[in-house]
Design a binder for these strands. Structure first.
Lengths: 175, 175
DNA sequence: TATTGTTATACTCTATAACTATA
DNA sequence: TATAGTTATAGAGTATAACAATA
C-alpha cells in the first residue's frame, strides 16, 4: 500500500494539473460555451447515452446537463432519440457535425500539449496514460456513484432522431 | 518523440481526470468558497508572493485573484505585507490559521483518493507523481507566460503584516 | 508611458428546489 | 411512490474594461 507521504505528493501533482487543463481549454478555438465541449467529448468516447448518465459522467447536476444538451442540440452537434423502453428518458448522440467539432477540438488540444512532451518516448507517454487510467478506474471502483467512464456504449434504439420542432411538442407532453 | 496517437490517448486521460478532481474538491469540508482554497494551496507550496504572481500560477485574471485574496484575508487565512521595493504591489502569505486550513483540506483530500490507490505500491505512486511533475514542468517550459509552479519562494520583506484597518486606508491612497 | 492592484459590470457555470410526465 | 428530465432562481467563478496609484 502506498504511504501517506507518497499519496500527498500525488495529490498535489494532480491539483497542479488544474491550471494546465484550464489553459489548454481556454486556448481552444471552440465556438460556443466550453461546458458543452466536455459533454461532446464524453459522447465521443462512450457513445450515446441518457442525460442522467451524462450528468453522472460529468459530475454535474442533471439540471446542468439538461441546459447544456439543449444548447449543443440547438447548435446541431447532438440529437435526441426517445428511449422506447422508458418514455421518460432520451438518448443523446453526436451528429456528424458534432463529431467533427470534437475531433477538431481534440486535435488542437493535442497540439497544445505537444511541447510539454518534448523528449518523451512513446513508452513514457504510454506509461503515464496507463497510470492515469488505472487511477481513474480505481477511483470509480471505490465510489458510491461511480463516474463509470468505462461504461460500454449502450445500444441505441433504432428510431429516427427527433427533429427540433417535433421534440418541442413532446416536451410539452403531446407524445 | 511521442507519436500522435499516444498523445491523443494521454490528452483524453487528462480530460477524464477533471470529474475526479471536481468530486474530490466538492467533498472537502472547506468553510468558504472553494476558489479561495486553490489560492491557499499555491501559497502553501510556493510561499509568499505578489497577487499578480498568484494570478499567473492559478491561470486566472488578476481581478479574480484580487477578490479571492480579499475574501480569504477577511477570513484570516492570509495577510498582506507591502513590498518595500515597489509601492504598487503587495506580498500575500499564509497565516498560521490559513496553514492549518490548508493542511486539513489536503488531509481530507488524501483520504478521498486513498481508495483509488488500493493495490498500488509506493513505486507506482512515485512513478505517477514523477511523470505528472515532468509533464507539468514541460508544459511550463514551452509556455509564453509560464505558470512557474517551481518558482522558489521569494524572500518576504521583513515588515509587519498590515492590519485590515490600516490597509483600508492605504488602499484609498493614504500610504 | 507602463505596471500593480481594485472595482464595476456582465457572462458562464453550477446547484437547489419546484414542476411535469412517465414508470 | 419513485424516477427522468425541465425550468426558475440564486449563487459561485470568471473575464473585460475602466480606474487609481506607483514605477
Amino acid at each position: 500500500m502506498a504511504s501517506d507521504g507518497d499519496r500527498g505528493e500525488l495529490l498535489v501533482r494532480l491539483a497542479e494539473l488544474v491550471p494546465v487543463i484550464k489553459a489548454v481549454k481556454r486556448d481552444l478555438p471552440f465556438p460556443g460555451p466550453r461546458a458543452g465541449l466536455s459533454l461532446l467529448v464524453v459522447l465521443y468516447r462512450c457513445g450515446a447515452m441518457r442525460l442522467g448518465e451524462l450528468a453522472d459522467c460529468s459530475e454535474v447536476d442533471q439540471s446542468v446537463i439538461s441546459r447544456h444538451v439543449a444548447d449543443v442540440e440547438e447548435r446541431g452537434w447532438v440529437e435526441r432519440a426517445p428511449n422506447p423502453r422508458d418514455g421518460r428518458s432520451w438518448y443523446v448522440r453526436l451528429t456528424p457535425d458534432g463529431e467533427r467539432v470534437v475531433r477538431e477540438a481534440l486535435a488542437h488540444a493535442r497540439h497544445s500539449i505537444e511541447g510539454a512532451l518534448d523528449g518523451w518516448t512513446d513508452e513514457d507517454v504510454a506509461e503515464l496514460s496507463g497510470l492515469l487510467g488505472r487511477f481513474r478506474a480505481g477511483f470509480d471502483a471505490h465510489r458510491d456513484r461511480p463516474l463509470h467512464r468505462d461504461r460500454p456504449p449502450q445500444p441505441m434504439p433504432d428510431t429516427a432522431p427527433v427533429p427540433d420542432t417535433a421534440r418541442a411538442q413532446t416536451v410539452k407532453g403531446l407524445r
